[in-house]
Structures are given as C-alpha cells and as structure tokens.
Nucleic acid binder design. Structure first.
Lengths: 225, 225
DNA sequence: CCTTGTTGACTGACGCATCAGTCTAGGAAC
DNA sequence: GTTCCTAGACTGATGCGTCAGTCAACAAGG
C-alpha cells in the first residue's frame, strides 16, 4: 500500500483525524452507514485498516463525531447569515417580485433559509448525512422507495394542478409544491411518533392546511413592526 | 418449537403470507431493516426460520412487498377521502381558469391531508416504514440525530417566537411551526440531490419563504369560517 | 556525523460473531 | 403413498475490532 507520512506533531495528528473524517463523510454519504466498511474508509483516507482504530474508538464513534461536526458547521453558517441580516435589516432589499414589501423582521428568516439551501447546495454529502433517508438501505431500496413516494407526489400534484387551473392557487412549479406538501405531512407525522405535542389529528391537519394555503404571517399586507 | 397448523388451502397460505407480512412490519418498524433478522420475523410470526423462505424469496423481497402493500393501502384511503369530499362539496370542478375561486375547491385537499394524518396516527409502524429516517441505523443513532436536528429546530423556534412577539406572525405552537420549517427545508434540499428541477438556490429559498409566510393561495387570507 | 535506543504511528492478518440463505428430515393432509 | 408445508441445524460470507509486529522519527551518546 502507498506509504503515507507518519503523523508526528499534534497538528499532524489533528489533521489526520480530519482526513479520516472527510473520507468517512464521502463514503458514508455514498453508501450509508451499514453498507460502508471500515476498510472502505481506510482506503478512501489512504490509510490501512488498523489505523482508523488508532484515531477512532469504533465505527459508531466515528460516525457520530462526523454528524456532530457537520451539523455544527451548518448551524454556525446559518447563525452568521441571520445575524448579518438582522444588523443590516432595514437596508435589506431582496424581496421577491409581486410580494408586498417585507417588514425588516423577516430578513433574518429569509437569510437563514437562503443560507441553509446554499450550504446544502454546496455540500451534497452533508444532505445525505443529515437526511439519510433510504440511502442507508442501499440502491435498490432507494429506487423502490422513491417510486413509492413519487406516487404520493403524483396524487398531490393532481390536486395542486386542479387548484391552479381554477385560479385558486398561485401558479408555480406544481411538482415542487406537491413534493413540499407531501414531505411536510410525512415529517410532521413522523414527529408525532417521537414527540407528543398534544395536537389532535384534526388540529394538526387544520394547522398544516392553513399554513400551506395562507402562510404564517398575520396580515399579507405588511404592518410596520 | 410449537408446531403450527399447516397452511393447506390457498386461503390458508394467503393468510399465512399476510401474517408474515404483519409480523415483519412490526419488527422492521421497531428495529429498521438492517437490525432485524429473519429469525426475528419468524419468531414474531410464530414460524420457524425456514418457513419464511417458503413464502418469500428473500429478506429484501419481503421488505419491498411490505412497503408496496402499505403505501398502497394509504393511497387508497386518501383517494377515498378526497373523492368523497369532492362529491360532497359543490360539484363545480371542470371550470376554466380565471374564474372566481369556488369555495369548495379546497375541500378535497383538506380531506386528503386530514385522512393522511389520521391514517398515520392509527398506524405508527407505517410512519416508521415510510419515513424510516435514522431508525434504520439503531437506537443510539436515532437519539443522536434527534438531538442534532433538535438544535436546528431550537434555532428556528427562536426566530419564530421573535416574529410572533412582534405581531408579524400568527400566534400558534412555535415548536411545531419551527419543526415544519426546518423539515421542509431539509426535505427540499434532499430532493434537489435526486431531482434536478433547475431551480437556483435563490429561487427555491424565495419560493419556500413565500410559501411559509404567505401560503399557496392567490387570495392571501379569508376570514376563518 | 554516525550509531543505537526508544517511542508510538501504522499495518494487515486473524478471531469471532452475526446472519442470509440452504438443505433435509419429519409430519400433517389427503 | 404422495404431496406439500414446517422445522431448525447447517453453511458460507461478511465485517468489526484486536493484536503482534514493523518501521519512521527523533534523541542521546559517542
């Protein structure tokens, strides 16, 4: 195997830990947790099998540290964007055409969403790690699940298009809208498993539909804040 | 092991297949795909190891069939609800674009969302199967990931509460709102990996923010009925 | 500058457990 | 007796984690 320089100084070692983490990230993102082996990570890092264990306790510990580090970086970026939007709030002019001028209070929110999407865009592996979805199960599962979920999106899209045709709903990318709706429902349903927020199915679905149809703001027309 | 009655008739066999599927559903939902073994399923079904292979080709085939069956049942239920809401409301559906929005146009949508949430509520295992999330990785991972995602929700919730305090955003369960926002962003980001819808980060985040703030309808807000 | 000793980063074969899938004996139904 | 289902022992493959050994880097002594 290609020999690598031995890490001697503390900086060397820290950097090697980082290298391993980076290698692990790409491999985990590609194959999912179960399908990646320590050998894969070692290969990607240009190290031998055993060396991984010199730096990390176990496969699990490596994975957990990776997740934490990545999430931390993302949160930091978001906080930055929100903060800088808040300070330069009144001068913010990135409103969308057709929408009423947003009060300055929205600016950090807009900035945070934007920063998140951009961060994800720039780092596809991160998305896979944080929203690992079916990818943890393997290729054929992923396809099968995508197909199944696609059916729900199809159904929803039909409703959306109908509403758009009737002029009730704003024109726009119906597929994306439909996807947003179905995934939002799914995520909230999943959340109910873990967290009991005491909302009945009726309350939750009303909340959801109203959110989707009317949005979260009090008045569509801007009010001075 | 306690012998069970041999399945003789076709109905018997079909019913045994169903039993296995039901057992598999609960075990897969509990432990995730990788962590459940055929032995677990056999035990849950009250059969022996080998019998599972009499009815199913492989673990994978069993899992895929399970997913398809479950998703099919859910879709059927949703379609029913939407259909009955559509007939129950005004039958004006084939209108041309540009007409004033008929009040009943939303009804199928509301009914579909409601039916979905209720279906999920009544079947927690199904939610785990369809939105398998971290659960495919095991208990400790699930907790770790929940904690990490909780941090993002915390951050978002602070923004939401701020907007609510300023009277810009409607009062409501800030935690649920925050969760809806973060998960929606995550899901759309994840979707971008697979499907290239040609939307820039800017377009997408504007779309998202506008959806969340103003909703999808043309008329921003009508008086609550 | 060269030799020798010590440390600890690195290697990779191997032990061991796990588990998907196979095989065959046994027994119920007919 | 024959067919068909059930049981569960068995096999083989896979992969985590270990460990005995190797060797680069550096230090001390000559």
């Amino acid at each position: 195997m290609a020999k690598i320089r031995r890490a001697v100084s503390e900086e060397d070692k820290a950097s090697r830990r980082q290298d391993i983490l980076a290698a692990a990230k790409s491999v985990f993102a590609e194959n999912g947790y179960h399908a990646t082996t320590i050998a894969d990570i070692a290969r990607a890092a240009g190290l031998s099998y055993g060396s991984i264990y010199w730096y990390y306790e176990s496969k699990e510990a490596l994975f957990l540290e990776l997740m934490s580090a990545e999430a931390g970086a993302l949160r930091e970026r978001i906080a930055e964007a929100a903060a800088s939007a808040a300070t330069g709030a009144t001068a913010a002019t990135t409103t969308t055409a057709g929408q009423p001028p947003s009060p300055g209070a929205e600016a950090p929110f807009r900035a945070a969403v934007r920063a998140t999407i951009e961060f994800y865009d720039a780092d596809r592996d991160l998305v896979k790690l944080l929203f690992r979805d079916a990818f943890a199960l393997g290729e054929s599962f992923e396809e099968h699940l995508a197909r199944i979920q696609g059916l729900f999106v199809d159904d929803t899209e039909r409703l959306v298009i109908g509403l758009q045709r009737q002029g009730v709903m704003q024109p726009g990318p119906s597929r994306v809208v439909a996807f947003a709706i179905t995934s939002l429902i799914g995520q909230l349903a999943h959340r109910r498993l873990v967290t009991d927020d005491g909302l009945s199915a009726e309350t939750l679905s009303d909340f959801l539909v109203d959110l989707l149809l009317h949005g979260l703001l009090v008045q569509p027309r801007s009010a001075p804040a």
